[in-house]
C-alpha cells in the first residue's frame, strides 16, 4: 500500500495578474521507504509540490494523504531539508541537532543525548559539536541540518534542492552521504532537484515534471543496483537514462519559453 498518495492534486495561486496554476492533476503513489526524485525545469511547480507535502501550503484541488490521513499542516512525521540550511545561528551544532527533541511534540522519542551523539558521529561533526553554524563550511552546515531533521526520526524526508548551494565536489560527496543514511535509516524520501544527474543517481523512481502548469510528464523507474556507486554515472545504463530525461526536460523548457514568448 502506498505511504504517500497524491490524486488529481492541483494548486492555483491568486496573483495580481490573475490566477496562476502551479500544479495540475498530479497523480503519484509513493511506497514506504521509496526514494523518489522530482526533476523539471524551473517553474514546473516542484517546490510547490514539496510545500504541499510538508503542509506549509494547502492544495486547491485533489487529494493528498500520508499514511492514509490527509495532510493537515506541517508535522514531525515529515522532515523537511531546506535548500537554505535551516540552522539556528544562535545554537551550536549539537544544540541545533537537539532542537527538535526538546520540543514538547517529540519528548517521547528517547534520550536526546544518545540520539545527538549518534547523529554527530554519523555526520562526522563530533569534533565540531560546539561550533555555531557560521563557523562551518557549506557541506558541514547541510550535514548538520540533515542531522537535526533525522533527530526527530520522521518517516518521510522531504528535500528541496538540498545541495543546490554547494560546490560540485561537496555536492557529489553529500549525495553519497545521503544514500548511506537512507540505506541505514530506511526512510521514504522525496527529493526535488533541477539536476538530472542527481535525480537519476539517487532515485528508485524519477518523476519528470512539465511546466505551466506543473504536471507529471513521465515517471521513470531507475533500475540501477543498490548501493549506488559514483562510477555508475559513467555506465551506459545511466547515460541512457540521463539522455532520455534531459530530452524531456529540454523539450518542455523550450516549449515553455515559446509559450511565454507567444
Amino acid at each position: 500500500m502506498a505511504r504517500i498518495s497524491l490524486s488529481h492534486l492541483g494548486k492555483t495561486f491568486a496573483s495580481r495578474h490573475g490566477n496562476v496554476t502551479a500544479l495540475a492533476d498530479i497523480n503519484l503513489e509513493i511506497a514506504d521507504q521509496e526514494f523518489i526524485t522530482i526533476v523539471g525545469a524551473s517553474g514546473c511547480g516542484k517546490s510547490t509540490l514539496l510545500n504541499l507535502l510538508a503542509g506549509f501550503d494547502t492544495p486547491t484541488s485533489g487529494q493528498l494523504t500520508v499514511d492514509g490521513a490527509p495532510v493537515n499542516g506541517p508535522g514531525p512525521d515529515r522532515g523537511v531539508v531546506f535548500q537554505q540550511t535551516a540552522l539556528f545561528p544562535w545554537l551550536s551544532v549539537e544544540e541545533n541537532i537537539a532542537f527538535g527533541l526538546k520540543l514538547r511534540a517529540n519528548r517521547r522519542k528517547g534520550s536526546s543525548e544518545k540520539i545527538v551523539e549518534r547523529l554527530l558521529a554519523r555526520t562526522g561533526l563530533a569534533a565540531f559539536r560546539s561550533r555555531r553554524p557560521a563557523e562551518l563550511s557549506g557541506g558541514m552546515r547541510q550535514r548538520a541540518a540533515i542531522a537535526s531533521v533525522l533527530a526527530i526520526n520522521p518517516s518521510t524526508l522531504l528535500m528541496d534542492e538540498p545541495f543546490g548551494a554547494l560546490d560540485a565536489l561537496t555536492r557529489s560527496i553529500m549525495q553519497d552521504f545521503l544514500l548511506e543514511v537512507w540505506e541505514e535509516e530506511r526512510k521514504t524520501v522525496l527529493l526535488v532537484t533541477h539536476d538530472i544527474d542527481v535525480a537519476i543517481y539517487l532515485a528508485d523512481r524519477t518523476v519528470v515534471m512539465t511546466a505551466h502548469p506543473g504536471r507529471v510528464r513521465e515517471i521513470i523507474a531507475v533500475h540501477l543496483p543498490r548501493p549506488r556507486r559514483y562510477e555508475m554515472r559513467s555506465e551506459e545504463r545511466f547515460i541512457a537514462l540521463r539522455d532520455h530525461v534531459t530530452g524531456i526536460v529540454r523539450e518542455e523548457a523550450i516549449k515553455g519559453a515559446i509559450e511565454i514568448a507567444a
Binding site: G55, G73, P74, G75, Q84, A86, F99, L103, I152
Partner: peptide
C-alpha cells in the same frame, strides 16, 4: 528568516515554543 520558523513548525514547535525558541532569540 522564514526558513527558521518553517523548520521549527515542521519539527513540531507549538506557538509558545516558536516564540521563545525562535522569534525571541532571532
Amino acid at each position: 528568516n522564514v526558513t527558521l520558523t518553517k523548520a521549527a513548525r515542521m519539527m513540531g514547535a507549538d506557538e509558545r515554543e516558536l516564540l521563545f525558541r525562535v522569534i525571541l532569540p532571532g
